[in-house]
Nucleic acid binder design. Sequence first.
DNA 1: CGAATTTATG
Length: 434
Amino acid sequence: MSLRLALRRARHLSTAAAEAETTAAKIVNISGAKKRLRKVYDPDEALKVYSSFSTADDASAPPASARHIQELAVRRLAKSRRFSDIEAFLESNKSKPQITEEPFVSSLIKSYGVAGMIDNALATYNQMADFGTPRSTLSFNALLLACINSKAYDRVPIFFNAFSEKFGLVPDKFSYGMLIKAHCEMESPEKAKETLSEMEKKGVEVGAVSFSTVLHALYKIGRVDEAEAFWNEMVKEKGIKLDAGSYNVRLSHIRDNPESLKALIEEMQNEGINPDPISYNYLITSYCVNGMMNEAEKVYADLLQAKGVRPNAATYRTMVFHSCKEGRYVKAYRIFKLSVKVGKIPDFNTLKYLVKGLTEKRRMVEAKAMVRTMNKKFPPDLLKAWEKLADELGLTRDGTEEAGASKVEKAEVDASKVEKVGADSGVESEKAST
DNA sequence: CGAATTTATG
């Protein structure tokens, strides 16, 4: 008997070891690396995943995916403010043979942008002559994007003019799109509008994105009348092709009136444009803050049934928060469970609100289940605060591992029930017992 | 698979 057990255990251990070895040392497969990076929050681990992957295949893999993984790793490092590591890592790529390929250099430039290191991005762009890398709008746009990601908006028009002239590059709709974004961020919609006219003059297509960027900027600085006139001008006179994003900009500025929101969503459907999750989130939020929880729930329920649209993480967060606010904690808990199932879990503060509410309502089973679930799901930086919260609420015992402890706790709960028949505040006795 | 846009922080 014990031999069989031992054998089984040995086999189990060896598979586990083999698995650990494959994940740590070699990830040949790209989607595997991506999956793993999404879960790995330690920047060193992220770097290891990236380098094991990038050394594993030099030329064979689709380079676009590899570059995406590089940006993910840089993002993780930047979050921990490990800028010298980022520099060392990205600079080391400059000795690789692919440095003569423009997409490869562009990826380095964009990665520096993601890290907020705009001077390194610019230096890399200037080095391209030394590398012998050809220039096109690809690297030009990468540099502009790096400025935007670094929030160095004032540099965008400077680089835009200087480098397009110096290297004889013809800006495309993406270049112009980023120039427009920069002007909008610097609160000068006039210049953004001028850029739009320049695009028309040069025969570059003005699409929904560029248009929506300017529209949003106008609303944001409170020029509502001008925004509406701009919509009429561009849509009715110039026949711009709209998308859900354009309508979402308008929806975002109808806050207090759920009926108007609903009407505008119907209008977009009549125009043949499908509302996206963001559109529905505006409607749901508006119902919630105007005390129309049942209507909000109906939109949410329809969204779960609908084909082609899914609730996103913000949908679950809004529904959980406002259900809690209305005291509907069990309903909120059900929504939370679904969000876990689909991997779109609300943020820490929302879940804090929920677990506190469940505890106050004496829904201990649900509260403890929640603590256990999130112990597995939260990244390390949030896990500490979560464990502290669970401790304060007296939820650290999960009631299954230690039978004795859970019995004692159960007895205490029952006692408090008997003590205060009809009273609904069990919070104090809970605090006292911990 | 991807270049530029748009939510809510209660």
